[in-house]
Amino acid sequence: MDETGKELVLALYDYQEKSPREVTMKKGDILTLLNSTNKDWWKVEVNDRQGFVPAAYVKKL
């Protein structure tokens, strides 16, 4: 969790967005987890953008 109590995830792999609903991340990025109710796609925030990334590409910290 960060200082505001939000849950964080670590990008395990690079991911290039394939639609406007997704976000690009690089391996090693720390992202804010917004929603993990879907087992396949998690909603995150990175670089002031919100979108989805494959759940298998990130790990909760």
Rank of each mutant, 00 (worst) to 15 (best):
R49Q: 08
L31V: 06
T24G: 08
P54Y: 02
E45N: 06
L34A: 02
E45G: 08
L12M: 09
R21M: 12
M25N: 00
K60M: 10
A55G: 04
L8R: 09
Y57L: 14
E17L: 07
L10G: 03
E3K: 10
L10I: 15
G28F: 05
D48P: 05
L33P: 00
L33A: 02
P54I: 02
D29H: 05
Q16T: 14
G51N: 01
Q50D: 06
A56I: 10
L12W: 04
N35E: 13
E45W: 07
Q50M: 09
L61M: 09
L33K: 01
V9E: 00
D29C: 07
T24D: 04
M1Y: 14
Y57K: 06
E45D: 06
K18I: 07
V23P: 01
Y15D: 01
R21Q: 13
R49D: 04
D14A: 06
Q16I: 15
E22F: 05
K59W: 10
S19G: 12
W42I: 05
T37E: 14
K26L: 08
Q50N: 08
P54N: 03
M1T: 14
F52I: 06
I30N: 02
L61H: 05
V23M: 11
A55L: 02
L61F: 10
V58N: 00
K39Y: 08
K60P: 10
V58Y: 00
P20A: 11
Y15L: 01
W42R: 01
D2W: 15
V53N: 01
L8A: 06
K18S: 10
T32D: 04
A55S: 14
R49I: 07
V23H: 03
D14R: 03
L34V: 12
G5I: 12
K26F: 10
N47P: 08
L8G: 03
A11S: 05
K26W: 10
E22T: 07
P20G: 09
N38S: 10
E17I: 06
T37H: 12
K26N: 08
S36Q: 11
D48C: 11
K43Q: 12
P54R: 03
A55K: 07
V44A: 01
D2H: 14
F52K: 03
D2N: 15
Q50Y: 06
W41P: 00
E7Q: 14
D14F: 04
E45Y: 06
E3H: 15
P54E: 01
N38M: 09
R21C: 14
E45K: 10
D40H: 14
P54S: 02
E17V: 05
V23R: 02
S36L: 05
D40P: 02
D29T: 07
T4E: 13
K39E: 10
N47E: 13
L8Q: 10
L8P: 05
V53T: 02
L33S: 02
D48M: 10
W42D: 00
K60S: 07
V46A: 15
G28L: 02
S19K: 07
L12K: 05
R21E: 12
K6T: 11
G51S: 02
P20D: 13
N47R: 12
L34F: 04
L33W: 01
W42N: 01
P54D: 01
F52W: 15
Q16C: 11
K59E: 13
I30Y: 06
E3Y: 08
A56P: 08
S19W: 06
T37V: 10
V9F: 06
R21I: 13
Q50W: 07
V53R: 00
N35H: 07
F52T: 03
L34Q: 03
L34Y: 04
V58A: 03
P20I: 09
K60G: 05
V46I: 15
A56M: 11
V9A: 11
K59I: 15
G5L: 12
P20C: 09
N38C: 08
E17R: 13
L10H: 04
V53G: 00
L61S: 04
E3D: 13
W42M: 03
W41M: 05
S36N: 09
A11Q: 01
V23A: 05
K43F: 15
L61Q: 06
A56K: 14
W41G: 01
E22P: 05
K60I: 12
I30H: 04
Y15E: 01
F52Q: 03
F52A: 03
K27R: 10
S36T: 09
V46K: 15
D40A: 10
T32A: 11
M1G: 13
E17W: 05
